[in-house]
């Protein structure tokens, strides 16, 4: 009796082709969509990027952060400083913004990773508050009032239509990079180690898996991408202020709900979550607080009755998998193990 271990499902190549086709169609969006649609699509791609990274942290690495807004805000501010005040070209300024977020993330990780779960979560929020207060006191970036992106930066990306298309492509590319990174990471030995420590930290440590080092690595990757996403999201808005940049509801609560409702711990979850989130937002926007009450209730119900979220339900019902990261044992002579 023999067996091989495979991660790709039976439809691996077909799914890869379909995915490539979807990305190509999305890339062609500027050819037939107006500016408002592009702006919405860019926002969705930004949220999806944030959600993929939050899912990587919470769903796979067991790092529950409710302070991710700090990296969105710092990425946005770093971009405004580097591109707006120093005149660095946009394409160079974006990775620099991500690098700045990751640079700040390292000391934060070294201090906070010693805390156990719930403490870590609240402490990340405190760090975000500190960042917001410090930025509000920094008059070089406009203090509490914030700053606008100088017009020459916007103009460097062409006219309004060209700029919308370019920013959309950037957001789409970042989103693909984020999903690709998360996918590759989860398939790597380090990714496996991460899942092992999510499931049982003590046992994984006993097997020689260095939990802290792997966690810090994945945290730095996530903050780097989160920082760039922040830069793109505020490049769309052309304006940044401490209250908008470090908004816990916008950049963390929404993202958490996207991941939880879509499917925590499934790479496919955030995609489904973003679609649902924006659909609900469009449908219920007129109902004010009711919308957020419904979202909160939906997230609670999901945690109680379907902890794997929507995708978890679909996966269990139909066995679908777009991003197979689980290894499966295939017995070559068809016997059960």
């Amino acid at each position: 009796m023999g067996a091989t271990i495979s991660r790709s499902g039976p439809h691996g190549p077909k799914i890869a082709l379909a995915g490539a086709a979807v990305v190509l169609i999305l890339a062609a969006l500027p050819a037939f969509a107006d500016r408002a649609t592009l702006r919405l699509a860019t926002e969705m791609a930004g949220y999806l990027t944030l959600a993929v990274m939050w899912n990587l942290l919470a769903g796979y690495a067991g790092v529950m952060s409710i302070g991710q807004q700090v990296f969105v805000g710092l990425g946005g501010y770093a971009f405004f400083v580097v591109a707006g005040l120093w005149g660095v070209p946009v394409f160079a300024a974006l990775p620099l913004a991500g690098a700045f977020a990751a640079f700040i993330a390292l000391p934060i990780a070294l201090i906070l990773f010693r805390l156990n779960g719930a403490y870590f979560a609240v402490a990340t929020w405190v760090v975000a508050e500190i960042a917001a207060l410090v930025i509000a006191q920094t008059y070089a970036v406009g203090g509490g009032a914030g700053m606008s992106l100088p017009t020459q930066v916007a103009k460097s990306l062409g006219n309004n239509d060209q700029r919308s298309a370019l920013i959309w492509w950037l957001a789409l590319a970042l989103c693909c990079i984020a999903a690709g990174l998360a996918y590759l990471w989860m398939r790597s030995p380090r990714g496996l180690a991460l899942m092992a420590m999510r499931d049982d930290e003590i046992a994984a440590a006993g097997l020689g898996v260095s939990t802290t080092r792997n966690r810090i690595m994945v945290y730095l990757i996530a903050t780097f991408i989160t920082g760039i996403a922040g830069a793109i999201l505020f490049l769309v808005k052309l304006r940044i202020s401490p209250s908008a940049a470090f908004d816990v509801n916008e950049w963390t609560a929404s993202i958490i709900f996207i991941v939880v409702i879509g499917g925590l711990g499934y790479l496919e979850g955030p995609l489904l979550g973003v679609l649902l989130f924006f659909a609900l937002r469009a449908l219920l926007a007129g109902f004010g607080p009711w919308y957020l009450i419904a979202l909160g209730a939906l997230a609670i119900a999901t945690m109680l009755f379907a902890p794997g979220g929507l995708w978890g339900l679909i996966h269990r019902r139909f066995g679908w998998e777009i991003f197979p990261v689980r290894r499966r044992v295939i017995l070559t002579n068809g016997e059960t193990p």
Binding site: M64, G117, A118, I256, V260, L295, G296, I300
Partner: peptide, 11 residues
């Protein structure tokens, strides 16, 4: 519990 109390906070 963290996620549920977070949702509760929003509600």
């Amino acid at each position: 519990p963290l996620l549920v109390t977070f949702g509760l906070s929003m509600m």
